[in-house]
Amino acid sequence: MATRAAYFSPSEAEILMEVYEEVKEQIKMKGNTATIIKQRKKAWQSIADRLNALNMTQSPRTWQQVKIKYKNILQNVKKKAHKKCSAGGSPKADITPAEDIALAENKARINEGTDTNICSSQDSNSFIKVSGSIVKLEPQIPDDADPGEGTNAAETDAIDDETSSLGSRKHENSQAIKQLYAQHMRQQIQLANMDMEYKKRKMEDLALDSEIKRRTIRILDLKIKKLERELQEDDTS
């Protein structure tokens, strides 16, 4: 399930963009293996940890909220640039500090031109004016997109969640097998102890039976000797 977008103050958004610059290499790693997905999440989480450490809000930020906010900032700055282009104004007129950082970070994807005609009729949504120059926004995947991510961020989040879910279920299954094996071993030890106790008691019973028989023999031996004395006395009389 996709995480609901949360409100970020302008200061939070600006810090988010600054910290993103430090960890963007991890976020932009190509591939969708479990290890790479884990590293991306770790990078987003580091941004959330930085924001939470500043105690700027009572509700701790999650890495999902940070990721969604970053995408929103990038989308907003592009929309504002297109809107200002269509109106013939400067795209930076109402851009926030966080959006300004986003625009600067993505300048590598913008090709500068020399045409002084802003927003030509052929493709009015593909050009913006920055400091008197014409720049063209290439129809490429956003710079923030994870490798393999399309225009629907929710789909990628679902893939990430499913991959994490599979890894979690595998871990849970492994833990369950270990617990069952440990339980089996404990039962085997318990059965072995019961068997030893049974044999011990059986040996005690045999020893007791042997003692009873020994005493019985002793009594019979005494009775025989008594009878022999009596017979001897009868013969002498």
Rank of each mutant, 00 (worst) to 15 (best):
148 G>H: 07
200 K>V: 03
135 V>H: 03
102 A>L: 01
8 F>A: 05
232 Q>K: 15
61 R>D: 02
139 P>W: 06
59 S>A: 10
125 N>A: 15
60 P>D: 07
167 G>I: 03
94 D>W: 04
151 T>G: 14
74 L>R: 10
148 G>M: 07
105 E>D: 08
37 I>M: 03
174 S>P: 00
169 R>T: 01
88 G>N: 09
237 S>N: 13
143 D>Y: 06
27 I>H: 00
237 S>H: 06
26 Q>W: 04
204 E>D: 11
10 P>K: 14
195 D>N: 15
100 D>T: 10
9 S>I: 06
142 P>D: 02
156 T>R: 08
46 S>T: 07
192 A>Y: 03
45 Q>E: 12
83 K>N: 04
77 V>K: 09
173 N>T: 00
117 N>Q: 14
139 P>V: 08
219 I>L: 09
3 T>P: 05
48 A>I: 01
57 T>C: 10
21 E>G: 07
49 D>F: 03
159 I>W: 03
192 A>Q: 14
167 G>R: 12
31 G>M: 00
9 S>W: 11
75 Q>P: 01
89 G>S: 05
88 G>E: 12
185 M>N: 14
88 G>A: 08
31 G>N: 00
182 A>F: 05
69 K>Q: 11
140 Q>S: 11
232 Q>C: 11
169 R>E: 06
69 K>G: 01
198 Y>Q: 12
168 S>K: 15
80 K>Q: 13
29 M>E: 07
10 P>C: 12
32 N>M: 10
166 L>W: 00
125 N>S: 14
147 P>I: 04
8 F>H: 05
54 L>T: 10
181 Y>F: 09
19 V>W: 00
70 Y>Q: 04
14 E>Q: 14
50 R>G: 02
22 E>M: 10
190 Q>S: 15
209 D>R: 11
195 D>V: 03
177 I>W: 02
35 T>I: 04
54 L>I: 13
185 M>E: 13
153 A>V: 05
15 I>S: 04
69 K>A: 11
234 D>H: 04
65 Q>T: 00
227 L>S: 06
49 D>Q: 13
46 S>L: 12
111 N>L: 12
49 D>E: 10
98 A>Y: 02
233 E>I: 11
117 N>Y: 10
31 G>W: 00
145 A>G: 00
188 Q>H: 11
47 I>H: 02
183 Q>E: 14
177 I>C: 01
212 I>W: 13
201 R>Y: 09
20 Y>A: 07
48 A>C: 03
147 P>Q: 15
